[in-house]
Design a protein around this nucleic acid. Structure first.
Length: 202
DNA sequence: TATGCGATATTCT
DNA sequence: GAATATCGCATAG
């Protein structure tokens, strides 16, 4: 049943060249990770933009060994560790040499739900991909995926879904201390798979 | 429901 | 030494 899901690989030319537009564009798209014998996929329901010159963004102070993937052409994966414990997945969003990206904060699991649940222990099913750290754990994304081209014929890629996307809401970003006032978080409204407090899901 | 804390890689002061 | 784009568990109300 899952194998008949209609997924169409996104071409780089389809991705907006602007970070904020890309963040909004990715809502309702699908993240796919092809493993040896299984497919993991999830519908993206929450993102945050970290545009050029954003003091809350990792690229703000220039290129380092950790954040170099943010400076790749749009559509590449930037994976990093935060708080020493959680992996976070971003999509680079500008032209080569410019550091900016879109953080993927939540997915609604589609293919491979049993596998995700298995690797997640007793976590509630509804929380599998709810939150940036949980998203990477469910999708089995870690530092090995850092720098991958999500628009190439690789194991990790972006797809368009036949499913209709609901109304898109906009809010402040979550968990920041700098540049907190800008409305750079996008999410599908009233979707319970979106992370954060309830007031930030409406 | 809300708040606090430990784990701990990388960068900055 | 301190801060950070987090999570999961503990405890309290």
């Amino acid at each position: 049943m899952n194998s008949v899901r209609q997924l169409r690989r996104l071409r780089r030319a389809e991705l907006p060249v602007d970070t904020v537009q890309l963040a909004r564009y990715l809502i309702g798209k699908v993240l796919v990770h092809d493993l040896d014998s299984h497919r993991l996929s999830g519908r993206i329901v929450e993102t945050e933009a970290y545009p050029i010159g954003d003091s809350a963004g990792h690229a703000f102070r220039g290129k380092t060994p950790r954040n170099r993937s943010l400076f790749l052409e749009r559509g590449h994966a930037y994976v990093h560790i935060t708080y020493g414990t959680s992996f976070l997945l971003n999509v680079s969003s500008e032209v080569p040499g410019v550091g900016a990206g879109v953080l993927l904060r939540a997915v609604e699991p589609l293919d491979g739900v049993e596998l995700m649940a298995g690797s997640r222990g007793a976590t509630r099913l509804a929380d599998l991909g709810r939150g940036p750290g949980r998203l990477t754990k469910a999708m089995q994304v870690d530092l090995r995926q850092d720098g991958l081209d999500l628009c190439a014929a690789g194991p990790l890629w972006l797809a368009a879904s036949a499913q209709v996307t609901g109304a898109i809401g906009k809010s402040v970003r979550v968990g920041l201390t700098r540049n907190v006032d800008r409305l750079l978080r996008f999410y599908e409204r009233d979707n319970p798979r979106v992370s954060g407090p309830k007031r930030l899901r409406k």
